[in-house]
C-alpha cells in the first residue's frame, strides 16, 4: 500500500544547503534536478514521490529552462525562494522531502562584503544534512596579476586604477570565507558532507583546453585555495567533487540538443565516469547508496 508522502516528510526531512556566489548555476541545477527526479534514469536512482505543496519558485523559471534559455538572475526581494522536492529512494524504500533553500548568491556575497549574516539563517544551518557548493567551470577563480611581461608592458603606459572594491575580490577567496563562516559559526555538523558542483562542465575539455577533465583534479588546479582549504580541514569537511552540465550544453545555444528532453540532456561527471544521474551528489550527501 502506498503511504502518504505528507506523513513521510514529517519523519524524514533532509535539508541540504546550497552555497555559491551569484550566477554559479544553482538555480539551473535545481531545475534540472527536478526534471531528473521526475524521470529517473534507473531503478536505483532517486525519484520524485509527488509534487511539493509550493513549487512557485520552480515554476517561475520552468518554461525558460525547458526551452534551453538562460535563467534570469534570482531576484533578491523574492524571499520565498526555498525549494522542496519530494523524493523516494527505491533501493531502501526511504521517502522524504528534500529541502533546497535556494540561498541566492547575493546572500553569500553580502556575508563577504558586509561581514554579517541573518540570525535566522544561522539558526537554519544547524540541522542541515550537507551542502552543495557551486562554482562555475568558466568563471575566473582569482584575479589576474600584472606579472612578467605584463608588468613591463604596463609600466610604459599610464592610467587611473579603480579603487578597491571588496566585491571585486577573487571568487575562490570569497567562497572560502563563506565556508569558514558556516563551519566555524554556523553550528553545522562536523565533519560536514559537502559536494562541490562545478557547473557549466560542458565548457571543459574543448579543443585546446588544457584544464583537467576530472572534476577533483580540475578543482585542485583551477580553484586551488578552495581545494586546499577543504582538504586541510578533514575535521570540518567530508567532500566529493562533481562536474555538472544542467542544460547539457551552453544555454541559449543548445541547437540539436533541444530535441532531447531536459532530463536526457543534463549530465554529471563523477571522477572519470559520466552519468545522467544528477541525483548522485544528493545521494552521497544523504548517504543513500
Amino acid at each position: 500500500m502506498e503511504s502518504d508522502p505528507r506523513q513521510a516528510m514529517a519523519v524524514d526531512i533532509q535539508r541540504v544547503l546550497i552555497i555559491g556566489l551569484p550566477e554559479t548555476g544553482k538555480t539551473s541545477f535545481i531545475q534540472a534536478l527536478d526534471e531528473v527526479l521526475k524521470h529517473p534514469a534507473s531503478a536505483q536512482d532517486l525519484c520524485a514521490s509527488g509534487l511539493a505543496h509550493d513549487r512557485s519558485y520552480i515554476q517561475s523559471g520552468k518554461a525558460d529552462f525547458l526551452a534551453g534559455k538562460k535563467l534570469g538572475r534570482t531576484l533578491r526581494p523574492l524571499e520565498n525562494t526555498s525549494v522542496e522536492l519530494w523524493f523516494e529512494h527505491p533501493p531502501t524504500g526511504k521517502r522524504g522531502r528534500l529541502h533546497l533553500p535556494d540561498k541566492k548568491g547575493e546572500i553569500f556575497r553580502d556575508q563577504w562584503v558586509n561581514r554579517q549574516w541573518d540570525k535566522d539563517y544561522r539558526l537554519s544551518l544547524k540541522g542541515i544534512a550537507g551542502a552543495l557548493i557551486f562554482l562555475r567551470a568558466d568563471e575566473k577563480p582569482r584575479n589576474d596579476e600584472r606579472l612578467g611581461i605584463l608588468a613591463m608592458e604596463a609600466s610604459k603606459q599610464g592610467g587611473t586604477p579603480r579603487p578597491w572594491d571588496i566585491k571585486a575580490a577573487s571568487a575562490q577567496v570569497q567562497l572560502v570565507d563563506v565556508l569558514q563562516f558556516i563551519i566555524e559559526y554556523g553550528g553545522v555538523p562536523r565533519p560536514l558532507r559537502v559536494a562541490v558542483l562545478i557547473s557549466a562542465w560542458d565548457t571543459v575539455g574543448n579543443e585546446g583546453d588544457l584544464r583537467p577533465r576530472e572534476p577533483a583534479k580540475f578543482l585542485e588546479r583551477e580553484w586551488s585555495l578552495l581545494a586546499q582549504y577543504v582538504r586541510a580541514n578533514p575535521q570540518y569537511f567530508n567532500s566529493r567533487i562533481f562536474g555538472v552540465s544542467a542544460y547539457g550544453g551552453p544555454p541559449d545555444a543548445l541547437g540539436p540538443l533541444l530535441e532531447q528532453a531536459p532530463h536526457e540532456r543534463a549530465w554529471l561527471v563523477d571522477g572519470t565516469e559520466t552519468t545522467r544521474d544528477l541525483t548522485r551528489p544528493l545521494r552521497w550527501l544523504l548517504e543513500l547508496h
Partner: peptide
C-alpha cells in the same frame, strides 16, 4: 581570518583594478 585584507593588499597589482603599473 583576514582574507579581505589580503585581497585588498593585492588589488593594485591586478589587471582587474585597471592599474597600468602594478
Amino acid at each position: 581570518h583576514t582574507l579581505p585584507y589580503f585581497e585588498e593588499l593585492n588589488w593594485l597589482a591586478t589587471i582587474e583594478s585597471g592599474v597600468q603599473q602594478p
